[in-house]
Design a protein around this nucleic acid. Structure first.
Lengths: 242, 242
DNA sequence: TTAGTATTAAAACGAACGTTTGATTTGTGG
DNA sequence: CCACAAATCAAACGTTCGTTTTAATACTAA
């Protein structure tokens, strides 16, 4: 309630904390949450083993702090961009709305020399992590942003039923997070060299048209599959046998 | 070399092994590889703790066995479908080719009552897992299939440069694996209820048109971003300040 | 300088991990 | 029935895990 004396949480910011956050960000990205140990983190950060528990509480709290440090500003920037967009035009195009989602991610990847790209990959990983505390955290972090962007897309794509839009945003988030996590296996699959894989601006410039086209795609034909156990073996690809 | 006596590897198949594979599949899916312990697995399978090491060698070997059991037949089925497709027509449509990728996944999800859907989610997880042995394994498993399908898509989309096609297949795999991993956090984001989230046929029928449209999307405009450090702050979304 | 707090440091905590060992049981061909 | 290999079992192996404790040091306000 006061403002000067009782500084319990707010901007406590020692060099130790920053070193821990940086080291944890890199290590969590490289090995995942479970496979990264406190001893690795504190060793990489060149701080005492007990420093993490002292400054952050627990390993889980540290992970949330790592995410919050970058995610919070990024999502606020996304919302600010969307607000500006909607102030200028009653119905912004899907391209513009998608750009409002991408640009803050681009800035994150580009501006901060340390951590930027690493963090995006870490974020992509976190999306696929089954740990309950991670899921709870991400849901909370993204709830407001996703809701606002969904509403914006709904206005920009009025022909699209709400449920279909939910699915397609699901796909958009999937392609985005998967792409940002930029794994080595994928690079192998796509035969793309590392230099290109890590040029995030080029990457997102390629991804955007792909997703926009997906969002505008014709509605799927879902009529024929009410029967869920009939014999609808291979109907789409018109042959496999017989 | 022979064929009758020396049965070292092939179809050893005790009830114990199957129970271990089933339990491991479910647990790996739910908690991930690192967060799943041997004691959980053997307890769930109601076998002795040492049984995993006895039958499979190590925890990592078990994980690969879990994946191989379902992945091998599925990818072979994909290749068979594609072969049939190419025998019928010199240039199958992208829709047909994509269907040849999806249908075996659909069958996997539907036919085996136990494990089917769980396995698809496990597979989606594995794609995002940073563990080197997982990446190596998946790369090896998918190399041939991806190469064949990329060639097929290249013929179906002749206007698309090879590099662009690589990227778009990357996005396709991303949306697919992310969607199949079907996490709870995502359900929350999309406001989709569990019944729908786990109806994989409906899911893939919605995903296919989305991805097809993405594959056919117009080429991105990449000219303006040669300068990588100029001042190209926010150009796409036309405003954020100033 | 001194009192008091925030931080760092070294060491140990109990718990859980994957794996191995050695004995015992099970199943099978001669 | 017997011999022998395959399979199961209980127990323990040595590590490593996240966290806590206790003491020493650095910093700051009076």
């Amino acid at each position: 309630m006061s403002s000067s004396v009782i500084a319990l949480d707010p901007p406590r910011n020692s060099a130790t904390q920053v070193r821990i956050l940086d080291a944890a960000e890199a290590l969590f990205m490289e090995h995942g949450f479970e496979a990264t140990s406190m001893r690795q983190i504190t060793s990489e950060a060149e701080v005492n083993l007990a420093a993490v528990n002292y400054h952050f509480g627990s390993k889980e709290d540290l992970f949330e702090a790592v995410l919050t440090r970058r995610l919070d500003p990024m999502n606020q920037e996304r919302l600010a961009l969307l607000t500006t967009l909607e102030r200028e035009s009653a119905a912004p195009t899907p391209e513009k709305i998608l750009a409002a989602m991408f640009i803050p991610a681009l800035r994150l990847a580009r501006e901060r020399e340390r951590g930027g790209k690493n963090f995006l990959r870490l974020l992509g990983r976190a999306y696929a992590d089954p740990a309950p505390f991670i899921r709870r955290f991400l849901s909370a972090q993204y709830a407001e942003m996703i809701a606002r962007f969904k509403a914006a897309f709904a206005r920009a794509l009025p022909h699209l039923p709400k449920k279909e839009l939910s699915w397609r945003l699901h796909f958009v988030m999937g392609a985005l997070s998967y792409t940002l996590s930029g794994t080595d296996a994928l690079r192998l699959i796509a035969e793309l060299n590392p230099r290109e894989t890590h040029n995030d601006e080029l990457l997102l410039r390629r991804l955007a048209p792909f997703l926009i086209a997906g969002l505008k795609a014709p509605l799927p034909d879902l009529d024929e599959l009410d029967a869920h156990e009939a014999s609808p073996r291979a109907r789409i690809a018109n042959r496999s046998r017989s």
